[in-house]
C-alpha cells in the first residue's frame, strides 16, 4: 500500500472540509453526494489508480476516471487539487464567474483532470466504454474507472451502455454506482425504485461486486479486487453503498442535503466534526 488506512482517512477528512467550505463559499452546489463519496475518491486517486498529475487529455498508459453524476463536482475538484492536479487555493473559485471549477465538470475551461463534461445525467457510462475501447485499440493495458449515481440509472442511456459493455467484452472497465438511495425528490424507493440492481447488472452480463463505500479499508480492498478482475472478459460493476452526507451528522442519510449549501452556523458545526489534516485552502 502507498498509504495506511489512517493516512487515507486523514486525506478524506480534509476533502470533506473542502467540500463544505466550497459549497458554503458560493452558497450553492451539492454537498450530500459529495460527502458520501469522499472515501471512494480518496481510495481511487491516492491508492488504486495509476495516474499522472502531469495531465494530458489522451492519458495514454494511465488509468482514467470519468464522473457521470457531475453534480458531485466538489468532491472531485477537492480530490484533484489535493492529489496535485492544481493548487488547492483554486477551490475557492468554485461556481464563481471566470472559474475553471464550473458548477458541473467541463473540459471547456481546461481544468486538469477532467476529460469530458458531465451534469446532464446518464452519459458517463457510454463515454467510459468509448475510452476503454480506445485503450484496447491502442494496446494500452490501463483501466478505465467511472462513477454513477443510483438515481442517475433511471436514465435510459445507461441501459444501452449496460447491454453493450458485456456483449463487447469491455473488460478494462470498472464502473462504480454510488448507491445512497436518495435523489432530489426523495428516496429512490419512492421516486422510481431501482429494485435489485445487482440482479439487473448480472443479468446484463456484468461481474458485480457489492461493497460499503464509507469504510476506507473496504473500499481500497474492493477496488483492488475489481482491478484483479479486469481482463477476464467481463466489465465490472461495483455496487457501492454510501450514506449521503457521510461525515457530517446533520447532513447524513437524507436527500435534503442533495443540493443545499450550509449557512455560517451549519458550516461551523460541520467543520467541528471534520479534522483539518492537510491545511484548509
Amino acid at each position: 500500500m502507498k498509504h495506511t488506512t489512517e493516512e487515507l482517512e486523514e486525506i478524506a477528512s480534509q476533502i470533506r472540509r473542502d467540500i463544505v467550505r466550497m459549497v458554503h463559499g458560493c452558497q450553492s452546489g451539492h454537498p450530500g453526494g459529495s460527502l458520501g463519496c469522499a472515501d471512494f475518491f480518496t481510495a481511487l486517486y491516492f491508492e488504486v489508480m495509476h495516474h499522472s498529475t502531469d495531465f494530458t487529455m489522451d492519458g495514454k498508459g494511465e488509468d482514467l476516471f470519468f464522473l457521470s453524476n457531475g453534480h458531485i463536482s466538489p468532491v472531485w475538484y477537492s480530490t484533484l487539487a489535493r492529489a496535485g492536479y492544481f493548487e488547492a487555493s483554486e477551490l475557492a473559485t468554485f461556481r464563481k464567474l471566470d472559474s475553471r471549477l464550473q458548477g458541473h465538470p467541463t473540459t471547456h475551461e481546461h481544468l486538469p483532470g477532467v476529460r469530458i463534461a458531465s451534469g446532464s445525467l446518464g452519459q458517463g457510462m457510454s463515454v467510459a466504454i468509448g475510452a476503454a475501447l480506445a485503450k484496447k485499440l491502442n494496446n494500452d493495458k490501463a483501466i478505465v474507472f467511472s462513477l454513477h449515481g443510483d438515481g442517475e440509472l433511471q436514465e435510459g442511456q445507461n441501459w444501452e451502455a449496460a447491454m453493450f459493455a458485456p456483449f463487447n467484452k469491455v473488460d478494462n472497465l470498472i464502473c462504480t454506482v454510488d448507491f445512497n438511495g436518495q435523489q432530489i425528490d426523495g428516496p429512490t424507493e419512492k421516486v422510481l425504485s431501482l429494485d435489485n440492481l445487482q440482479a439487473k447488472f448480472e443479468a446484463f452480463g456484468w461481474h458485480v461486486i457489492v461493497s460499503n463505500g464509507n469504510s476506507m479499508e473496504e473500499i481500497v480492498k474492493t477496488l483492488q479486487y475489481a482491478v484483479s478482475l479486469t481482463g477476464k472478459g467481463k466489465p465490472i460493476l461495483n455496487l457501492m453503498s454510501t450514506q449521503m452526507g457521510y461525515g457530517v451528522d446533520f447532513m447524513m442519510g437524507s436527500h435534503k442535503w442533495h443540493g443545499v449549501a450550509p449557512n455560517d452556523e451549519q458550516l461551523k458545526l460541520a467543520l467541528d466534526q471534520l479534522k483539518e489534516t492537510l491545511g484548509d485552502y
Binding site: 457510454s126 467510459a128 466504454i129 476503454a132 475501447l133 480506445a134
Partner: peptide
C-alpha cells in the same frame, strides 16, 4: 463498432474514443 439500435450510447462511446486519439 456496431452499437445496435442505441444512438445515445453510440454518441457517448464516440466521444469517449476521442480520448485516446
Amino acid at each position: 463498432t456496431q452499437v445496435g439500435i442505441a444512438e445515445a450510447n453510440m454518441i457517448g462511446i464516440a466521444a469517449g474514443m476521442t480520448i485516446g486519439g
